[in-house]
Design a protein around this nucleic acid. Structure first.
Lengths: 368, 368
DNA sequence: CACATCGATTAATGCGTATTAGTAATGCGC
DNA sequence: GCGCATTACTAATACGCATTAATCGATGTG
């Protein structure tokens, strides 16, 4: 913005200062004694399109090599009407100092897949309200500079996202989301994953199990419950409403007494939802310990997700891992498809089942 | 490259499908009832150049806003202007699966500083040799899409980097590097940092100290040695060649006997270079332990850097930390300066001195 | 009242490449 | 030997934006 930056005068002289300027196709063409278009054709190396004689091809390649010709990416992208850029927009800093909450695992997948497909990544930071970019609602429209954009985090304003979507700008949200109508997203397949956990427990011989969940309506929660209930159904087990224990504060409500009550009722396995805080899982572990029970022996436990970092050294919970890296890759795949004008690809990514050490056969029942 | 991708027929119809296409200046112009040139002028917001009436300005800005107009970076570049994009190029994946080797701490600073200055970041992935992008010399040239580019890692090919540099394309390398002539870089100030460590030891009363270093010629190594020797000089201490112990395999050569020899000669402090492997530091710790010495009491130790991750729980070594985040920020500052046509900013970033627990006063000398 | 002045805007052009319509040259069949 | 393909290229143009020369109306001047 500051300095207009001298440009070569509109006039003739295409290569004024001899050596210094980068060679253009025009100069390669001159050296090879052909037209610029021919150079472009040779270097494009298409199979279709106009034929080129082997002789000409060699002349051009030789000329290009000797001049050290390298295509100008800006011109290339301008002409191609696409710039091979995918945006990544996060509403917090993409690289938070607090590594715990970082999108790192996603980015690993995003980068890999993007590279694979020949895309470069543009990082937009929603939190960059400080600098030049006016932080108004139109801040989001910066992303239009890319061919499409990936959104991370749930803080994306519905309004603006909807605008992009209805404008036909390719957008993919990382994490399931129903909000702006027609928004594309990729997410972990919690339904199948929870189902699989139930399968595992059922295969071990458990006939009654209870899901401990917190009291919120996020899709991630309801999906897990769905999968859990479907799993029970598939296994031919009872799936009534009492198989789901829902509490806004599991640490308070999930008492050892309640646990014993369930056990007395024949419940042998407990499945906890995973959340940010891991409250359900913590409460479950606590209750089991307080009731003086031994985990794999007296009762089997499972966690519908990965344990919180501070419990990482405990016994590995039966459950599943969210395939963050693969989610990132899947998001890029879908985005690439949308950019190419194709149908959206599969939004669900399978979770990785983790046998873990917190489940085993149910305790033998005496009266049987 | 793959799919020729239908382009709008050369004919008239500029905006065929209504909503979908990205808005261009031409459409903003139409909506505002002015010419494309006027739109460009308004959006450029120059102080010089043709005057624009306030009324027109507002009309254009309003139209641009309502369409969500964003300039095409490629076109901007091609027209010899600025993008507000800074490139980040790494030759390994920017987000490796192995988080240990990640550039993460740098990126934190890079992102923050870039946002501060109103730049967006483009991640160019050099390691994408597997996929579509042929890894030819032009791989590097993609970065020309941005206004300037930051390079991470030491694997950047000199040849191609040099090309960018001589072409006047703004480039900053993260980490000191002398190789392509004229390449700008930012790096940690190892000289001062090592100097400071020596100051600290001297202030504690140490009169003789030895630097343990590995046998390589990386600038990072020689800088540390320089700082060490300068530190000795400043403190008025002996700085002969025997104050530097250089070994290709410290684990083998740094024996307890040798250590005792030094102690007998009056050496009371040992300073180890930091490297990837931390070999010098490990050998030093081992030798001290094997010699049955107590670290802060019988001999003081210092490490010119941060300890390797697996030694993180040991006593905190006296030494310094490499300010990676600030290095990232400094790199962006310099790059921004270069892009603006200004002088390069200060390349050296101070390290943070760490008093640590491995140094103390030298043992009292009886015969004194 | 013809003419230079100034301000606001536009027409025209270039940036470097990809693409497509078109041209010249050659080969082929009848 | 004249259409008609086919081959091998080239000319022309568009891509989206910045820039500059030119235009036009309004104002002022001698």
């Amino acid at each position: 913005m500051e300095e207009p930056r001298k440009r070569a005068r509109p006039g003739r002289s295409p290569a004024p200062a001899g050596r210094t300027a980068r060679p253009r196709q025009a100069e390669v063409a001159r050296l090879a004694g052909v037209s610029q278009a021919t150079v472009s054709l040779v270097l494009a190396d298409k199979r279709e399109g106009p034929a080129i004689s082997e002789e000409t091809r060699q002349k051009v390649l030789e000329a290009a090599r000797s001049l050290g010709y390298v295509p100008d990416p800006a011109a290339r992208r301008l002409a191609a009407a696409r710039n091979n850029l995918l945006g990544v927009f996060s509403f917090t800093a993409t690289f938070p100092t607090d590594v715990q909450h970082s999108y790192y695992p996603f980015l690993v997948g995003v980068e890999r897949e993007a590279a694979e497909r020949g895309y470069d990544l543009v990082l937009f930071t929603g939190s960059s309200t400080g600098g030049a970019g006016a932080a108004g609602p139109e801040a989001l429209s910066r992303v239009r500079l890319a061919d499409g954009c990936l959104f991370l985090g749930r803080h994306a304003p519905v309004q603006e996202l909807g605008r992009l979507v209805t404008d036909g700008f390719p957008v993919v949200h990382l994490g399931r989301r129903d909000d702006p109508e027609g928004l594309h997203w990729v997410g972990a397949d919690y339904v199948s994953a929870a189902h699989e956990v139930v399968d595992h427990l059922a295969a071990l011989g458990h006939r009654r199990m209870v899901l401990i969940r917190e009291d919120d309506e996020a899709p991630a929660s309801t999906d897990r419950e769905h999968g859990f209930l479907k799993g029970l159904e598939t296994a031919g087990l009872h799936g009534g409403p009492e198989t789901v224990f829902r509490s806004a504060d599991p640490a308070r409500d999930l008492t050892p007494e309640r646990l014993r009550g369930w056990l007395a009722d024949g419940v042998t396995a407990f499945v906890a939802e995973e959340t940010d805080t891991g409250a359900a899982w913590r409460a479950l572990l606590r209750a089991v310990a307080d009731a003086g029970l031994d985990c794999p022996r007296d009762a089997s436990l499972a966690l519908l997700g990965s344990p919180p970092a501070d419990l990482a050294d405990g016994p590995e919970p039966t459950g599943f891992d969210i395939p963050r890296t693969r989610l990132g890759a899947a998001a890029v795949r879908m985005l690439a498809a949308l950019v190419a004008g194709e149908e959206a690809t599969e939004p669900l990514v399978a979770c990785a089942f983790r046998p873990g050490a917190t489940s085993g056969p149910p305790p033998a029942v005496h009266g049987h």
